[in-house]
Write a protein that binds this DNA or RNA. Structure first.
Lengths: 248, 248
DNA sequence: CAGTGGTCTAGACCACGGC
DNA sequence: CCGTGGTCTAGACCACTGG
């Protein structure tokens, strides 16, 4: 649900609304863990939707760890309470910070326009004369700088960029101002020894290793437009995931 | 497709078959990256399926990084070639080893029946007199032991266990012999200093940190039955993920 | 404009669980 | 046996793309 012109509208699809209503009720324990959801037919009556539409909403709930469907019985509400939520998937730093409610601060260390070096050319499949934004930002919490983000964005897709935007939220700008739709990303997590740059920006006490998350980010139209290297102080890194077993 | 009574049958569902056929063609580049899939209506004719069934198969392809759907245009085949495949999700060590084709060896270090300590009682929500299997296994490749797995399994769900089974494949046994269906898992990845046990079993050269993957594994019926702690030599750890942006 | 994917529907049949 | 979820269908309407 979003606010527009002083009117509360539900401009999403029916199954998204149903998903949001049910997931909200589960998070607030109005539908407590262990209980069965109403049957799909009942839900169809309640929301005035066909069964297939209900099933689309339930499939979303299942994928995101809210319920477990059991044939012949029903849909069981899962315990979602002490589950550190969606750190998985494509989540921007700001969305994360807002979720945990901690006091974070982003500092832009560098913002320049550049040409790609050989490595970047190969990684992003670029021409050598293609222009790129290079953004370096550090993330500080409780006086300690624990994350260093290096972003490379195609000038072709992001024609303008300011330090202010980078400090606020890059994804917000890309999705809501430029109206670009992010489609998917390929990520890779490794652990590496801290390098010169890490030591320059991060608060590295005794810790000498960093967790490096490298992502290739693509738009809706399969256009690659960003490469990100997110370097985390190893002792402050944590990745939480909900995984379903695929029975193919 | 599986073999039963000397007859090749396709006992899976229609949309799974279509998914497997298409994904296989994409992997073998019979459907090359960048190209458009036939339209949903055409596919419906080809496979003699309704459009909704085709769409279920395409949704699977999309979730697993094979295609990107673009409204008004079609489904674009993504480049899947140099993408280290499903290391994400619930994948057993053996499935992984078979995928990469490397020469791995599993050694069972301990296999005992025990009662849970306080920590395990809280973590798995157990009674203090409930019986658990404790399995410790190490994984060796190229002469170096790089993974240490500690598993705790409910005796109630796994009544029998042998070193032989643990050496072969635990998940194979659980799913195919005991006919239990694994539903989902909650995972957490952190980086920690190597402890006494790590030093005892792992080949730790100069590396002193390990990547710890802790998982709570649940059955289809929401019953928690396993806690696993998988400890990886940090320099040998790698996690690859394909993530779609959720537009809710 | 025609063709594409996105959503929603009503109805059918099946497989499974529990009484 | 009934009620549950799992699959599949045929058809409708919409939103978007491209010529």
């Amino acid at each position: 649900m979003k606010q527009t012109r002083n009117v509360t509208i539900m401009h999403e699809n029916k199954f998204i609304n149903i998903y949001q209503d049910l997931s909200s009720k589960i998070r607030r324990a109005i539908l407590p863990a262990g209980q069965l959801l109403p049957s799909e037919n009942e839900l169809g009556d309640q929301y005035r939707a066909s069964r297939e539409t209900i099933r689309k909403a339930l499939a979303l709930l299942s994928r995101n760890g809210y319920i477990q469907k059991i044939q012949g019985k029903g849909s069981v509400v899962l315990d979602v309470s002490r589950f550190d939520f969606p750190v998985s998937g494509l989540t921007s730093f700001r969305e994360l910070a807002e979720h945990t409610g901690e006091q974070w601060k982003t500092t832009v260390r560098q913002l320049i326009l550049m040409k790609p070096d050989k490595k970047l050319q190969q990684l992003m499949n670029l021409e050598e004369d293609q222009n790129l934004w290079k953004v370096i930002r550090s993330r500080t919490v409780g006086g300690e700088t624990v994350i260093l983000d290096k972003d490379f964005l195609l000038l072709d897709t992001v024609p303008m960029l300011t330090a202010d935007i980078c400090e606020h939220s890059l994804y917000d700008y890309i999705e809501n101002e430029l109206n670009l739709k992010i489609g998917f990303a390929k990520k890779q997590i490794t652990v590496e020894e801290a390098n010169e740059e890490d030591r320059q920006y991060l608060t590295l006490s005794t810790v000498s290793s960093v967790v490096v998350v490298r992502s290739l980010v693509y738009l809706d139209n399969t256009q690659l437009f960003q490469f990100t290297e997110s370097r985390h102080r190893a002792d402050k890194f944590r990745f939480v995931d909900f995984a379903r077993r695929e029975h193919l």
